[in-house]
Amino acid sequence: MMRPTHAPADHPAIKPAKTGILIANLGTPDGYDYWSMRRYLNEFLSDRRVIDIARWKWQPLLQGIILTTRPFSSGKNYKLIWNNEANESPLMTITKSQTQMLAERAHQEWGDQVMVDFCMRYGNPSTHDVLDRMVKAGCRRIVFLPLYPQYAGPTSATANDQLFRALMEQTWQPSVRTVDPYVDRPDYIKALADSVRRALGDTVPAKLVASYHGMPKRYLMQGDPYHCQCQKTSRLLREELGWPEGIIDTTFQSVFGREEWLRPYTVEHVAELARQGHTDIAVISPAFSSDCIETLEEINGEIKEAFEEAGGHGFTYIPCLNDDPAHIEVMMNIVRENIAGWVRD
């Protein structure tokens, strides 16, 4: 703590200025018990970016039947993948590791000029609490990196929304740079391709299913670029692998509600592939920066079962990039570009 030069003796002390690097992920319940799941689902499903139905229609349904029953089924699924040793979800474990590795790299390059931390859009640690901690630690500038390669309103935009809401509560707001989606970055595409090569070796599968998180189709019609960016990632991945057209299929998972979502649906598509005779396939999830309930339980559980029940027998799930050094290098490169002018080399 220091008193500003030429300030009077009673001026409050101020932390030396530094630059914050704040990475953001989707979030996780604190536990898989009913009340932890209910709190998490209530926050998640009350987000108007996620469910944009009029509140007077949606909230009675949410607070009634949905939050009465869904915490039980969701809790059972989380229990299947829970990191019991650390008593946290895999997404939390991985995000902590990503943050630690990124912090080590950042401090090697910029020393005490930077502070690295992470927050969750839903659940803990909240965006509000982490931003407040960084500001109190002296962060006058912050690079905000939502860990979503492809932009979407219900992911990237709501993470930014929450950051801006948190900024509204700060007396002395830091300057902020929000990071662009990195859908087509060569280093990200190469990291994806290398993860495929590690999993499959020199084998070119009959089909590699690139399964992205779904969203209602009308979001696309309203101008959300997510669908197009997913298609671009799949195309660039195929080109980086040097595979011919037709090998990678782009699909969408995690359908919720009755309206039509982006198609094809992963669970239906893999079953159809099995019925067509593609009994050995691989699945990758390029939209997820960390393995989580949607990959570890949905893809490697429900979707795998649908494939096998339709006659498939060879199902390879390719893990997310997680805390792979190549992924940390992608994150570091993004930070390096966005922190330019804010730190001394």
Rank of each mutant, 00 (worst) to 15 (best):
D249L: 08
P186S: 11
R185Y: 10
W172Q: 15
F118N: 08
R197P: 05
N160Y: 15
I248F: 02
P4M: 05
G314H: 02
M101N: 13
P125T: 05
G277I: 12
A13K: 05
Y265A: 14
H128A: 15
E302D: 15
E260L: 13
R218D: 03
W56P: 09
L61G: 11
I81G: 00
D323T: 08
T250W: 00
R258W: 09
L80H: 04
Q231V: 14
R218S: 02
M168C: 15
D47R: 00
L67A: 09
A157E: 10
Y148R: 02
V343A: 06
K57H: 12
A166E: 06
G20H: 06
F144L: 15
G257D: 11
P154V: 04
E239H: 06
E259C: 13
K190W: 08
C230F: 03
P12V: 01
G153Y: 08
A287C: 12
P181M: 03
T19G: 05
D280I: 10
Q173N: 04
L200T: 05
A191Q: 07
D184W: 12
Q113H: 03
A287E: 05
V183G: 03
A159F: 01
R105W: 10
G64H: 01
A191P: 08
E272H: 08
N322M: 00
V179M: 06
M332A: 10
N338G: 12
L145R: 01
A7P: 08
I318D: 01
A210H: 04
P71E: 02
L62H: 01
P16L: 14
T99G: 08
Y34D: 02
T233A: 07
Y148G: 10
L296D: 00
T19Q: 00
A191Y: 02
T279Y: 07
L236I: 13
F44I: 10
H213V: 06
P216N: 04
I293W: 06
T178Q: 07
I248Y: 00
Q113K: 01
A137T: 02
V183L: 11
P149W: 00
C119N: 12
P60W: 00
D52Q: 09
V196L: 13
V176E: 06
P60L: 05
S73A: 12
G64M: 03
T266I: 12
I23F: 04
L208Q: 03
S73G: 10
E268I: 09
E268Q: 10
D224Q: 06
S285D: 11
G201W: 11
Q222W: 11
E309H: 12
V196R: 05
R3F: 06
A340T: 10
E308L: 04
L200G: 02
